[in-house]
């Protein structure tokens, strides 16, 4: 078993914190691991990535070869686009749909999300929506860790232990926020996949998830949503246009 993951985002979004959680979980699980990261100039708001590899056998290269990446995990949707050539044809993309716009030529967001949604093995989560609900917009990175967690080789406990460890020195409140962000991300990722696996278009599924109250997310409600949206073509637009969030149980 070997997993190769590219963590992608923008300098300042906390990619290295994401790496910290996985590195420590990998060490606990007895895996070999290597994790290359970016320091210095690019950390000032530039595109940053980290190559994370873990395996039950020795790993040679710190860098993931092209075509050998199992997963791109992005805290920002545009950043996914930089790493396609590393992804295996059957690899996975787990991405935030919350754009970080600090450049003048950022693409139109729905065009970008439509392009992403065309990729079959994708998990899309609205990290902004979920992190805000968890109590701090800065916890978007831990939302993505949660959204990824169903696809990796660690238990929820193994990951949460290091989410907590990472923020311990910042106090209980911050720990609680990041714990919640992780759990919301985990639930949202599973819910998104349940929607898609029940036949909903990934773009629509991402949009719907961004309007669902995170504390109500549970996969058993997904199939009913697909049915509901099929029967009422205008429902999604109505929900998206409304100012308030809906329960996963139904509108």
């Amino acid at each position: 078993m070997q997993k190769n993951i590219i963590l992608a985002g923008v300098g300042g979004q906390g990619i290295l914190s994401v790496a910290y959680v996985f590195d420590n979980a990998a060490l606990d699980a007895g895996f070999y691991f290597k994790q290359a990261e970016v320091h210095g100039m690019a950390q000032r708001g530039g595109a940053v990535q980290s190559n994370l590899r873990y395996s039950d056998a020795k790993i040679h290269s710190d860098l993931i070869p092209e075509g050998r990446c199992d997963m791109v995990l992005a805290v920002e949707p545009l950043e996914v686009m930089r790493y396609w050539h590393y992804l295996k044809p059957d690899g996975w993309v787990v991405t935030s749909i919350t754009p970080f716009v600090n450049i003048p030529d950022y693409p139109e967001i729905d065009t970008l999300l439509t392009d992403l949604a065309a990729f079959p093995n994708i998990v899309m989560v609205d990290t902004g929506h979920l992190a805000r609900a968890a109590g701090n917009l800065r916890s978007q990175n831990m939302v993505t860790v949660g959204a990824t967690s169903n696809l990796l080789d660690f238990t929820e406990e193994q990951l949460l232990k290091h989410v907590e460890g990472l923020f311990a020195r910042k106090g209980e409140k911050i720990v609680a926020v990041n714990r919640k962000a992780f759990l919301y991300g985990r639930a949202a990722g599973a819910f998104f996949r349940a929607l898609v696996d029940s036949g909903l278009d990934a773009f629509k599924a991402a949009k719907l998830c961004s309007k669902i109250k995170p504390e109500t997310l549970a996969v058993e409600y997904a199939a009913a949503w697909v049915e509901r949206l099929r029967n009422n073509g205008a429902l999604l637009d109505t929900i998206l246009e409304s100012g308030s969030n809906v329960s996963a149980e139904g509108p």
Binding site: V10, G11, M41, A42, Q43, R44, G45, G46, A47, P65, E66, G67, R68, L78, E79, M81, R82, W84, H85, Y86, L87, K88, P89, D90, G91, N102, I103, D105, Y106, P107, T111, L112, D115, L116, A118, F119
Partner: peptide, 17 residues
């Protein structure tokens, strides 16, 4: 090595600032 098919989105650069 064969890689995933990439979409054609115009990839804006994101330099540090």
């Amino acid at each position: 090595i064969e890689a995933a098919h990439s979409p054609s989105t115009n990839l804006a650069l994101r330099p540090p600032s």
